[in-house]
Amino acid sequence: MGKSLTFKRKSFELLMRALMIISTGLTGSLVLFFLIYVLVQGVPNISWEFLTTKPSYLTESIGILPDILNTIYIVIATLALVLPLGVGAAIYLTEYASNKKVVEIIEFAAETLSGIPSIIYGLVGMLLFSNTFGTSLISGALTLVIMNLPTIMRTTQESLKTVPQSYREGAFGLGAGKWRVVRTVVLPGCVDGVVTGCILSVGRILGESAALLFTAGFAHALNGIIEGLAAPGATLTVALYVYAKERGEFGVAFAIAAILMILTLVINFEATLVQKHFAKRRTQ
């Protein structure tokens, strides 16, 4: 076959093949470079003390325990608020909504929300929440709730669509009311969507900085969860920004970057694992 090709076709073939392989190689080596560079620069700076103390001007040491705790608090607060809202919205869309226009409007709104850049969320969050709650983790969490709402809605909706219609009909046939069907048949069916949504949201919250800078601030105080939520605080990502850009502490910044990189790896791995697990269960 190869011999019968004209010169023009042959060169097109070669050129495209070369371009594809170069591009893929470039993408692959970029990922590899980021991974190795950040880990090599960061991991040597991570120590037990670094992870378990707060920054101190007396000993001139920097620890990131407050930032780790702030990140955990904000993840918990955001998920606790966004899960009922997102799952509820998804249930409305797939189970209750009968008006097509309403569905379209809600879906358009969700798509719009997922397209808005985080700096705008930060600004609106500052106007909406920081004026009421002050610059605090809870203001940051409320901003993140709006940001992550479309993610939870989408993943839950997708998993609800896989609940067979016959289950619902069976339950209705047995005389169950709508709410009972939702509670006993539909809700258990959306567990995988909720889990996937949670993992994606955690990843997004970990990586978020622009939306938190003006809503949650950048303090490094060590707090319990209740006082922590009411007080300003930096998450790991915001702390990285402050240490790198404003204080020139690149060692600390890289250590945090390495931690974030490892967490991103873990989250991606989890997400694939969960999806595989649920896909397998669905085919059984």
């Binding site: 970029l30 980021f34 990586g207 990285l240 790198a244 991103t264």
Partner: peptide, 18 residues
């Protein structure tokens, strides 16, 4: 594909730092 997902998951401040 998992490499690309990793690239998507890297926080923007890490891109900025590097």
């Amino acid at each position: 594909e998992s490499a690309v997902s990793l690239l998507a998951g890297i926080p923007s401040v890490v891109y900025g730092l590097v």
